[in-house]
Design a protein around this nucleic acid. Structure first.
Length: 424
RNA sequence: GGAGAGGUGGCAGAGUGGUCGAAUGCACCGGACUCGAAAUCCGGCAUACCGGUCUCCGGUAUCGUGGGUUCGAAUCCCACCCUCUCCGCCA
């Protein structure tokens, strides 16, 4: 959510900033709502003040045993007018609020303008892409040879976009998550957290726009709960409606959780394999910090995600997303894309964003600054990394042609010392 | 699932129709005392929003949430949510 003060005072800059991400700000509706809000609010508060003064007067008179009928007659008409104004004001504030909550964040000045992922900018590449002396299989075929990925059973259980993992592949999947969590907690200073996998609407609307994106979420039948599409939802909401002591900052959390996404609108995309699933695991990194630290924290958090790829020796590139490819709440996003030999392409494996105060304003997440004033926090988060896609990347990049797959050195301790898993 | 208790400021806790945004204590921040600290004393100390002649003044709202009664609600009524205790069931 944008700051309403900013809209009142710096409208041209806001309009221009949003236009860079192809969002046309509806100035006419805004000024209309604002004008109406102002007159209603002023009128309502005047009536309330009148009523309060009269009521106080009645209280004083009664305590002195004096007659109150005069004052009573004076306020007699106030009640109905006040009620009408209050109802109208609250309806209008609801409208204004939902209007504001569906406006996306303003991209930072250093975010390139662009319409789609094609216009993202490559910041750098890391790692040498391996050349194979055989035709590399994709992870689906490798999984089949290893008898480790079973889409058929998953489909029987739950339909499309689910997977069943077995044996050493299932173990590898677990090892990857453990390795990531350990790295972030032991080397990057994050606190491990375990969280609910369902959240209420306030939490969902705190980090994104529930009104806009509820179709992407799975809702629990008969309950006002949503399955989380990322641990960002519960973890960021730790600070919703709270004022954090500046001494406790920065808050750095690492969370391994499953993620559930309906993938509405992605029909026909990545239908083969486990690239795009309704359920996948992810280790999420979240930092909650003061405004002046968020730029630095965002860069730092991205390197924490990169560190995982480097330790696993997986080639990747770091992309600066253009305005058109950024998420609703983000002011600036880096994507990390891992090399997948079977696709002969880099594919997203992490997304690291700086939301500045956008989520904090939605959540009323604040801190007391040095001067003792409350100020909105900044939030930064990123995947460190998507576990399922990391599994895919390892299977494909570490395949050995005979159907076996080598285990990256960093993961071997998590695999009971195994250096290779072979065909069953 | 059954029975009961309760939700008040950062925390503890008083307040059961009127000058209550709310006593008191703790915590916290200033100041005094002190060589310094502790103790003590003095003062300050919620949040959000609105208006204006906008480093200041004025106003409004908020005592779990939403409605109701009333000139006036933390206080009375209704509904809902949540927490705790006991019993039952259960991984």
């Amino acid at each position: 959510m944008l700051e309403i003060q900013q809209l009142r005072k710096e409208m041209p800059q806001v309009v221009e900033g949003l236009l860079r991400r192809e969002y046309t700000f509806d100035e006419a509706t805004f000024s209309e709502l604002e004008a109406e809000r102002k007159s209603l609010q002023v009128r309502t508060e005047e009536l309330q003040a009148t009523r309060n003064a009269a009521s106080k007067q009645i209280g004083i008179l009664k305590s002195q045993g004096q007659d109150t009928s005069g004052v009573m007659a004076e306020v007699a008409g106030v009640g109905d007018a006040l009620k009408a104004n209050e109802v109208a004001l609250s309806a209008l504030q609801d409208r204004l609020n939902s209007f504001l909550r569906q406006i996306p964040n303003i991209p930072r000045a250093d975010v390139p303008a662009g319409k789609s992922a094609d216009e993202n900018i490559e910041v750098r590449r890391w790692g040498a892409v391996r050349s194979f002396d055989f035709a590399p299989k994709d992870h689906t075929d490798i999984g089949e040879v290893l008898k480790g990925i079973d889409f058929e059973t998953a489909t029987k259980l739950s339909g499309a976009r689910f997977s069943v993992l077995r044996g050493q592949v299932a173990r590898l999947h677990r090892a990857i998550a453990q390795f990531m969590l350990d790295t972030h907690t032991e080397q990057h200073g994050y606190t491990e957290v375990y969280v609910p996998y369902m959240v209420g609407p306030e939490s969902a609307d705190g980090v994104s726009s529930l009104a806009k994106f509820k179709d992407d979420l799975f809702k629990i039948e008969g309950r006002d709960l949503y399955l989380i599409p990322t641990a960002e939802y519960p973890v960021t909401n730790f600070v919703r409606d709270t004022i954090v002591d500046a001494k406790e900052l920065p808050l750095k959390f690492a969370c391994h959780s499953p993620c559930f996404r309906s993938e509405a609108g992605s029909y026909g995309k990545d239908t083969r394999g486990m690239i795009r699933q309704h359920q996948f695991d992810k280790v999420e990194l979240v930092q909650i910090i003061t405004p002046e630290k968020s730029t630095e924290a965002h860069e730092e958090l991205t390197t924490h995600a990169e560190a995982i790829l480097q330790k696993l020796e997986l080639p990747y590139r770091k992309m600066l997303l253009c305005t058109g490819d950024m998420g609703f709440a983000s002011a600036k996003t880096y994507d990390l894309e891992v090399w997948l030999p079977a696709q002969n392409a880099y594919r997203e494996i992490s997304s690291c964003s700086n939301f500045e105060a956008f989520q904090a304003r939605r959540m009323m997440a604040r801190f007391k600054n040095g001067a003792g004033k409350t100020e909105l926090l900044h939030t930064v988060n990123g995947s460190g990394l998507a576990v399922g896609r990391t599994l895919v990347a390892i299977l494909e990049n570490y395949q050995d042609g005979d159907g076996s797959v080598s285990i990256p050195t960093a993961l071997q301790p998590y695999m009971g010392g195994l250096s290779k898993i072979g065909a069953v």
